[in-house]
Amino acid sequence: MRDLPGLTGALYVFAEWIMRFSTANILWIIVNLPLLFVLLSVYINGFGPGFVVYLLPLVLLIPAVTVPSTVALFATAREWILQKDQSSITKTYFFHMKANYRKNFLAGLALLALWLVWLVDIYFFKQSNDFMALLFTLIGLGLFVYTLNFFSLCVHYRMKTRTLLKNAFFITLGNPLLSLFILVSNMSLFYVSATRLYFLIPLFTVSISAYLSFLAFYRFSLKMQKKAESSI
């Protein structure tokens, strides 16, 4: 049916992509409902003394659920970009979530450690030093791009976790245009979702973020591959 001519074919392709993004997005949200519930509780109650109660669930859920489920989302989006056939988005998603689960869990611990160090630093400097607070805000944006690049590397190449973490750093720092595109596109998407088009959050935001991030990374990797081949 993809070969239907004219407007009918275009509408079919449009509907197919809507279904892809919405299904993958809903699956990610369902898997991460426990984490979202904890984050909502933190938002409602604030970062008071009771925050410690929520810290342990966050420490457990992020590497055990959020990182593997996000890797699965990136792997699913990768197959769309590479035009691989998928008999079922749900089956594809959970297949990728179960594949290399232990490796993704360990990677989640490493990413969690980085984010916790950043969170403690910015919380401390936010109250004492405006310049350092601004600096760590910028570092946080870089860490966000670094995390997305790590997910793209994780689903596209077979490497050890330490190598993935190292290469994600070099790609993020060494390719400012790629990092800027990933940052601006994702921040724009999140801003519009949170302030204007609220329906994007349950249906499209996370899956579109994964798609745009991997697409940018994939085009960069193709460019680097062509450059390497031409230099031989």
Rank of each mutant, 00 (worst) to 15 (best):
R20L: 08
L106H: 03
D121M: 10
F125D: 06
F47M: 13
L119S: 15
L141E: 09
S185G: 03
C154D: 06
A210C: 11
F150N: 04
L200T: 02
S128M: 09
A72Y: 00
L148K: 09
V120L: 10
F125Q: 08
V31W: 14
P202H: 01
F95E: 12
G142Y: 02
I89G: 06
T147Q: 10
L58V: 15
Y54F: 15
F21I: 15
L60H: 04
S231W: 08
I139A: 06
F94D: 12
L60N: 06
G174K: 00
P5E: 14
F150L: 14
F217G: 07
I62W: 00
I26A: 14
L73Y: 01
A216Y: 10
F144N: 09
I182T: 13
A210D: 00
L33H: 00
A216M: 12
E79G: 11
V59A: 15
S209E: 01
T137S: 13
Q225I: 10
L116I: 12
S188T: 15
M97N: 04
S152Y: 02
T137A: 13
S213L: 08
K98L: 13
P5I: 08
Y93L: 09
S128I: 09
D121Q: 06
N186V: 11
K91N: 15
N186H: 11
I182N: 14
M1S: 15
F151V: 09
A113Y: 06
G9C: 09
P202K: 03
N167K: 03
S128W: 12
L36V: 12
L27R: 02
H156V: 08
A168L: 07
T76S: 14
L143R: 04
L39D: 01
F217P: 06
L189A: 01
I139W: 02
S209K: 01
L116P: 00
L119N: 10
L143P: 01
F14S: 11
N32F: 07
K226F: 05
G9N: 08
Y12W: 14
N25G: 12
L197Y: 07
Y54G: 08
R20D: 14
S221V: 11
N129M: 05
V53M: 08
I232Q: 14
K98H: 08
A64D: 06
F220P: 02
T147K: 04
I182V: 15
M132G: 05
Y43L: 12
I18C: 11
M97L: 15
I81N: 04
M97K: 08
H156N: 11
G9T: 09
D3P: 00
G48D: 00
V42M: 07
L73E: 01
S88W: 00
N167E: 05
A64L: 14
F214A: 08
F51R: 05
F170Q: 04
L112H: 02
E16V: 08
R2D: 15
L116T: 07
A107W: 00
S179H: 08
L135R: 03
P176T: 15
G9P: 05
V59G: 05
S69K: 05
L173N: 02
L180V: 15
L73F: 00
R162A: 09
K160I: 01
L58Y: 13
F220R: 07
R102V: 09
K126G: 14
L111H: 06
L112Y: 04
L215F: 14
S207Y: 11
L56G: 10
L143D: 01
F170K: 05
A15P: 01
Y101P: 00
L114Y: 03
